[in-house]
Every structure is written in C-alpha cells, then in structure tokens.
Computed example of a mutant assay.
Amino acid sequence: MSVVEWPHRFLTLDDWAALPEDPEHRAEVVEGVLVVSPRPLFFHQRAVNRLTYWLDEQTSPEYSAMGEAEMIVATAPLTVRVPDVLVTLALVADENPARVSAEDVRLVIEVLSEGTVRTDRVTKFSEYAEVGIEHYWIVDLEDPASMTTYRLIDGEYENFGEHTGKVSLDFDGTPLTLDLDALTTRHAQRP
C-alpha cells in the first residue's frame, strides 16, 4: 500500500484530475471531500458491463451508454460521481471527454452493492434530481434481480415501475428490452 499526499483543503477539479489511478478502489468527490470505497465484486461488474452494452446497442444513435464514467454534478464545491452506467448524447461521448457534465446525461443506473445502498437510494437520488437527470434506475442484484425506474417530473423523481425478469421499457421513444435475470449469469440475454 502506498501513501498518497492529500491536499489540506476541499478538492478542486484539478486536484481530482491529478489523483493517481487506483485499480483496487473506487473514488468520488462529494462537496469537495474524497470518498473512497472498495471496487465492486464480480457480479456487480458483470451487471454493469451488460447494462452498458445493452443500452448502447438498443438506444437511438443519438445516445451513447458508458460504464463507470466520471460525471461532474457540481463544480463549487466539487462533486464528481461515477455512476455504474450513464447515457449521454453521442455527440458528447464522441468528443472522448475525461468526464461529462450532469447536464449532458439523460439516464443514470446505479447497481446496489454492499456499502452503497443508502448513497444510491437517498443521496444520489436527490443529487441527480437536483441537477435534472431525467431518468434514474436502481438495480438490485439480490435474487431475483430487480430494477426500479424513476423519471423526473416537476423536479422530483416519480416511481415509473418495479421490474423483474425480462423488462420492456421506453427510453426517449425507443423500446428497450433488458433481461434482469441474465445480469449475473454466465450467458447474457438471448432473443
């Protein structure tokens, strides 16, 4: 384990960008404070990869899905979240940015894991609503895998459904099919 010299102040975007990469931990900044947690386990990573791929393949060409991409929620004080999956405009993704602004994100998916349940269901729920992210979906991998979908209506998230098994949804006029049972299995969804 190496020792890192941390700034003795709230982190800025420059401080954040200068942090060393750490493959064993996942980091975010919340109101200038660095928050570090262990990397998620294998099933969580498999679910994130599958959701990212399925969304990228099924959404309209004007959107792009990314897994574990940095998203700036606020600049002062700095809040940088790293959602499990986000969907942004393809024009933004095609610029190959280091991070995206929350204003360019249409959908965020968080996959619950040990240590993130309260953050995903309470803290990020309110943060994402405040910055106007239209869709927020929370996936729970406990058997049976389930997903709760929220949509921003008049500045607040409303529950648009709780799903298990094969799910058919509409995202911006495009039908999506997700097989929640296949999120952690060896074989991805099949037609």
Rank of each mutant, 00 (worst) to 15 (best):
G161R: 13
R118N: 04
A145M: 03
K124N: 11
S113L: 04
L178S: 02
E130F: 10
S113T: 05
L152Y: 11
A145S: 07
H135F: 13
T149Y: 01
M147F: 06
Y128T: 08
T148F: 10
F160D: 14
D179A: 14
H163N: 07
F125L: 06
E156F: 11
G155P: 03
D120S: 01
D154Y: 10
M147Q: 03
A129L: 14
V122M: 02
Y136K: 10
R118S: 07
E134P: 00
S146I: 04
D143P: 04
T177H: 02
Y128S: 04
T164L: 12
L176N: 03
F125W: 10
G155A: 07
V139T: 03
E127C: 03
Y157N: 05
E162N: 12
R186W: 15
E142T: 13
I153V: 15
G115R: 03
V139N: 01
Y157P: 04
E162F: 13
L183N: 05
R121C: 02
V117N: 01
H135S: 09
I153A: 09
R151G: 04
F125R: 02
E134K: 08
G165Q: 12
L178R: 06
F171A: 06
A188T: 11
D170T: 14
D181P: 00
K166W: 12
E142C: 01
V167A: 05
Y157V: 10
V131H: 07
T116W: 04
I153D: 11
T123Y: 07
M147S: 01
Q189R: 14
L180C: 06
E158S: 09
E158R: 14
R186E: 15
W137T: 07
D140M: 08
A182M: 12
E142G: 01
V139G: 01
D170P: 00
R118I: 12
S168N: 11
Q189V: 11
L180Q: 05
D181K: 03
I138P: 00
M147D: 02
R118Q: 08
Y157W: 10
G155C: 09
H163I: 13
V131N: 04
G173W: 14
R121I: 04
E127G: 01
M147I: 07
I133Y: 06
Y157G: 04
P175V: 11
R121T: 10
I133H: 03
Y157T: 08
P144A: 05
S113R: 09
V167Q: 02
A129E: 08
L178D: 02
T184D: 05
G161V: 14
W137M: 10
F171D: 02
G155M: 08
V122E: 05
V117F: 06
L178T: 05
F171I: 11
L176Q: 05
L141T: 03
T116H: 01
Y157D: 05
A129Y: 10
P144S: 05
G165E: 12
T174G: 00
G161H: 09
E130Y: 08
R151Q: 12
Y128V: 12
L141F: 08
S168E: 15
H187G: 04
L176E: 05
D143E: 09
V117Q: 11
V122K: 01
